[in-house]
């Protein structure tokens, strides 16, 4: 019963927040952020735990797998663009992954964060299942890593487009690869709002980042 109402509530909140965003189009109002906040507030008002929420929420999570598979469609539709820019994409995401993990590590050390937190921050730019695996491998806390992945995702969806606009980063390749490499699936969902081509590039950047991060993480163990 709680499960079904949680599922319904999530959909209702999402629909309402989408309407709100379409009406005001203000970065702080991106549906992923506002829906999350509204749901967390209602859960605490009714003294419901995350576990109870997931009774309903898990049905949406079940659809996330096939949704990622579905990204093959924009990938296929824009295969010519991707082929044309394969090398720049490979290079930028490879170094982007190194910079992402490296800057996270250095900054976290600079702020004297606890070692386990440092190691949970490192994989923040890659999609959560991969990030959680990496965190476990390098001595971080997987659930904490997932939280940082969400922060990276929401931040990218919230401010990415505005920052790009300010800095005149306007090409589909720039926007798509930046969002995918830094903010994984949530960034790709945002890229989809901006265009199918952006989304195709974003999903490639996100996939490549996940692959590179998994390959590079054994090296991080040496640090």
């Amino acid at each position: 019963m709680i499960g079904a109402s949680m599922l319904l509530w999530t959909i209702v909140v999402y629909m309402a927040m989408r309407k709100l965003y379409a009406r005001f189009y203000f970065p702080l109002l991106v549906p992923i952020a506002t829906s999350t906040v509204v749901i967390i507030i209602t859960l605490s008002l009714f003294h419901l735990s995350y576990e109870q929420y997931m009774d309903g929420g898990k049905w949406l999570v079940h659809l996330l797998g096939p949704a990622v598979v579905a990204l093959a469609l924009p990938l296929y539709q824009h295969r010519h663009t991707l082929k044309q820019f394969l090398w720049p994409l490979l290079c930028s995401t490879f170094f982007g992954t190194i910079i992402g993990m490296g800057s996270g590590l250095l900054l976290a050390r600079l702020f004297h964060l606890p070692e386990q937190v440092v190691r949970s921050i490192i994989p923040k730019s890659v999609t959560s299942p991969v990030a959680m695996d990496i965190a476990a491998l390098i001595g971080g806390i997987p659930t904490l890593a997932a939280v940082y992945v969400m922060v990276a995702g929401i931040f990218g969806a919230m401010f990415g487009p505005t920052i790009f606009q300010r800095l005149r980063l306007t090409t589909a390749l720039g926007i798509g690869s930046g969002l995918g490499a830094a903010s994984h699936g949530i960034g790709t969902a945002k890229a989809l709002e901006m265009g199918k081509k952006e989304a195709a590039i974003s999903s490639v950047a996100m996939t490549l980042s996940a692959i590179f991060a998994s390959l590079l993480c054994p090296l991080l163990l040496l640090l």
């Binding site: 999350t36 996330l64 997932a146 929401i154």
Partner: peptide
């Protein structure tokens, strides 16, 4: 976006 909400919560 909807599908990511349970994870962000």
């Amino acid at each position: 976006t909807l599908l990511f909400i349970p994870a962000t919560v």
